[in-house]
């Protein structure tokens, strides 16, 4: 019988306890941070929605919120058709060769690029082309270009996740590749794709770097026409020079709530997709037959 007080048991116990402690510590920091944000921002946010304005600021939060959401959805809508087309091509039509491997590596690399690089693209390539007064369009295009490789990568992965038996059975019924992709694969992959699009929007929505870069194209421009919640937060803190006010916490809380809602919707969609694909036996995945 194993000795309960053997060194192995002690070492195991210490490692186990340390992992639990670190996990709780990480969770505690997060809970403290969110709790602090809610504590400082909830009251102002409720007052804002009840009274229509923060006590000390103009009524700008609601238009900002809507602008943020419309820029996010606009960028995603611009990127989605291209991303779906490219993802479908890579997954269903492209032959397995070096070119395809190279394209996948390039898409993966672009998807991981820091957002400031996309901001640089907006500032360096789009801003001079479109000129002043088209900042919203520039930001939309920048968001779309930023989202594009992420969504291509997601479309590809989502289609590859669909059990091969769906492709096989649809083709065996006399369906073409396109009919099979559209009729049998996309209904499954579409959920993953929509979920990842929402997740990508949540990430884009929280970024300030591209907006700052685009705003930098015109020194006199303060980004009002494309001001998003995070940019507004950044600018009001930097320019006011004051200590954090309830207005700042209210804005931050609204941003966090927006992001949580988008991520929650994404998670919900993903779970539905998992239950669909999971219903097919694991052996069916990755095999034509």
């Amino acid at each position: 019988m194993r000795d309960r007080h053997s060194p192995q048991t002690y070492t195991g116990g210490i490692i186990y306890s340390s992992i639990i402690l670190i996990s709780w510590l990480a969770a505690g920091i997060l809970i403290f941070y969110v709790g602090y944000l809610v504590f400082r921002g909830f009251g102002p946010l409720v007052r804002f929605f009840r009274d229509g304005a923060f006590a000390e600021t103009d009524n700008i939060l609601l238009p900002l919120w809507f602008r943020t959401l419309s820029l996010l959805f606009g960028g995603a809508l611009l990127a989605l058709p291209l991303a779906i087309g490219a993802g479908v091509y890579l997954s269903e039509y492209a032959r397995e060769n070096r070119l395809k491997q190279w394209m996948l590596a390039a898409v993966g690399g672009l998807a991981e690029m820091p957002p400031i690089v996309y901001g640089l693209f907006g500032w360096g390539a789009l801003a001079p082309y479109f000129g002043e007064g088209k900042q919203t369009l520039i930001f939309l295009l920048t968001s779309a270009v930023w989202l594009l490789p992420q969504l291509v990568s997601v479309t590809y992965s989502a289609l590859k996740e669909v059990p091969v038996s769906f492709r096989r059975d649809s083709l065996a019924l006399g369906g073409s590749r396109w009919q099979t992709t559209w009729g049998a694969l996309m209904p499954c992959a579409g959920r993953f794709l929509a979920a990842e699009a929402l997740g990508g929007m949540a990430r884009v929505g929280g970024e300030t770097a591209p907006v700052i870069m685009i705003a930098a194209a015109w020194p006199s421009f303060h980004g009002q026409s494309l001001s998003t919640l995070p940019y507004h937060l950044y600018r009001s803190v930097v320019e006011s020079g004051e200590v954090a006010s309830p207005h700042h916490f209210g804005t931050a809380l609204l941003l966090v709530l927006t992001s949580v809602c988008l991520q929650g919707a994404a998670l919900r969609l993903k779970r539905t997709g998992d239950s669909l694909a999971g219903s097919v036996h694991e052996r069916e995945r990755g095999r034509w037959y």
């Binding site: 649809s170 036996h281 037959y289």
Partner: peptide
């Protein structure tokens, strides 16, 4: 063709 593992579509 009806394959070995019958898989209805979802």
């Amino acid at each position: 063709l009806i394959a070995r593992h019958p898989s209805p579509f979802p």
